[in-house]
Computed example of a mutant assay.
Amino acid sequence: MPTLEIDQLLNREQVAERLLDASDKHSFDPDVEVAWDALEDGKWCIPEKLVSLYGTPMWEAMPLEQRLDLSRHEAASTASIGIWFEIILMQLLTRHMYDLDYLSDHVRYALTEIADECRHSKMFARMIRRLDCPLYRPDALVRFLGRFIKTYATTPGAFTATLLCEEILDRMQRQIFPDESVQPMVRDVTRIHVVEESRHIRYAREELARQMRVCGPVERRWTRFSSGVAAVVVAESIISPEVYANVGLDREEALRQARASAHRGETLRWSAEKLTSFLQETGVIAGPIATGLWRRARLL
């Protein structure tokens, strides 16, 4: 084995060993750690500046009660799509592990991450029920694109998709759990998710950088394209258009205003700026097609 590959393998194991140790010290049981009954009148479910319609003419016309209600449904939409993302990520991780050494720390950590994602999905489902909201599913086209990504993504493409889901939500959730204007239950859920997802992000970043160093030109081009498609899927899935109808708004007009909102576009770019900088450095975002897709998603 060439020296470079030996160095990369050792680094991969060293990273996994540290992440396994952190998992032993800082993992949570949501059934115990979340104050599931802590719902208070007059509190947001996400900070108002993160609500998709914030700053639009429709937002200015909405009474406070309806704004709070929209934040509740948008929190449920984000959690619903979070479950869908987690299910895709677990499949990508099992694909990644399939031909690797099952005794390695790298695979042990991948299995640990899958266990984390299972807990997170159950936690999100319980939060949606406590918020008395429906499960918001992506539309048929987005579900098809998700199926495409989980089936045909390259290994670096799979880790890019992982980071897409995790880093965007992570940056938004870091604004939620310290905010005392937000429901205590939601703050508990986001705190757990942020702490445990930080390990997943480190694992995915390390592996993506490693994979992009060694993959061939065809795999690199396909990774760029499929990752751009994933960016569009993620950005357009976080908030379901159905949330607007469920709080008594005109669905199509609300969707139009949200998509035209400069504040919303800036929020999306802000949520992804650390990720897009990293992906440009590693060569995932490069060339007119991939760059165009990321701009189409309003993440760049």
Rank of each mutant, 00 (worst) to 15 (best):
residue 102 Y to K: 15
residue 142 V to Q: 13
residue 211 Q to F: 15
residue 143 R to A: 11
residue 35 A to R: 13
residue 166 E to S: 00
residue 296 R to V: 11
residue 229 V to F: 03
residue 184 P to F: 02
residue 106 H to W: 10
residue 95 R to L: 01
residue 121 S to H: 02
residue 15 V to M: 02
residue 260 A to V: 07
residue 136 Y to G: 09
residue 91 Q to N: 05
residue 295 R to I: 10
residue 90 M to C: 08
residue 133 C to I: 03
residue 169 L to A: 08
residue 6 I to W: 00
residue 4 L to K: 06
residue 201 I to K: 05
residue 250 D to A: 04
residue 150 K to P: 07
residue 92 L to Q: 10
residue 7 D to F: 04
residue 175 Q to I: 03
residue 45 C to I: 02
residue 198 S to D: 04
residue 61 A to L: 10
residue 272 A to M: 00
residue 180 E to V: 06
residue 99 D to T: 15
residue 121 S to M: 12
residue 151 T to F: 09
residue 89 L to I: 10
residue 296 R to L: 14
residue 49 K to M: 14
residue 300 L to T: 05
residue 186 V to L: 09
residue 114 I to C: 03
residue 15 V to D: 00
residue 95 R to V: 07
residue 29 D to M: 04
residue 253 E to G: 03
residue 172 M to H: 11
residue 203 Y to F: 15
residue 13 E to S: 02
residue 15 V to N: 00
residue 218 V to S: 11
residue 39 L to H: 15
residue 118 C to V: 15
residue 231 A to F: 00
residue 258 A to T: 12
residue 154 T to E: 04
residue 127 M to E: 14
residue 2 P to W: 06
residue 260 A to M: 11
residue 128 I to D: 13
residue 255 L to R: 14
residue 167 E to R: 01
residue 267 T to G: 08
residue 46 I to W: 09
residue 245 A to H: 12
residue 5 E to M: 00
residue 229 V to S: 01
residue 69 D to I: 05
residue 21 D to K: 12
residue 69 D to K: 14
residue 56 T to L: 12
residue 174 R to E: 13
residue 267 T to I: 08
residue 279 L to S: 01
residue 218 V to T: 14
residue 48 E to I: 01
residue 8 Q to D: 00
residue 210 R to C: 04
residue 13 E to C: 01
residue 158 A to T: 01
residue 79 A to V: 05
residue 144 F to D: 14
residue 133 C to D: 12
residue 24 D to P: 12
residue 193 H to T: 05
residue 218 V to K: 12
residue 108 R to V: 05
residue 22 A to G: 08
residue 115 A to P: 07
residue 160 T to Y: 09
residue 270 W to C: 04
residue 74 E to V: 07
residue 78 T to K: 10
residue 225 F to L: 13
residue 136 Y to Q: 08
residue 300 L to P: 02
residue 294 W to V: 07
residue 297 A to K: 02
residue 219 E to T: 15
residue 87 I to G: 03
residue 130 R to L: 02
residue 64 L to A: 14
residue 151 T to N: 06
residue 296 R to G: 06
residue 178 P to Q: 05
residue 246 N to Q: 11
residue 101 D to M: 04
residue 182 V to A: 07
residue 247 V to A: 10
residue 73 H to D: 05
residue 247 V to S: 10
residue 135 L to T: 15
residue 260 A to H: 08
residue 222 W to R: 14
residue 58 M to I: 15
residue 260 A to N: 10
residue 143 R to K: 09
residue 41 D to E: 13
residue 138 P to Q: 08
residue 145 L to F: 09
residue 108 R to S: 07
residue 80 S to Y: 00
residue 278 F to E: 04
residue 188 D to K: 02
residue 99 D to Y: 15
residue 84 W to T: 09
residue 168 I to G: 03
residue 62 M to A: 11
residue 12 R to T: 02
residue 38 A to R: 11
residue 247 V to I: 12
residue 56 T to V: 11
residue 256 R to Q: 10
residue 265 G to N: 09
residue 236 E to C: 08
residue 261 S to I: 11
residue 281 E to D: 11
residue 18 R to K: 13
residue 168 I to M: 08
residue 286 A to E: 12
residue 294 W to Q: 02
residue 224 R to M: 05
residue 56 T to N: 09
residue 112 T to S: 15
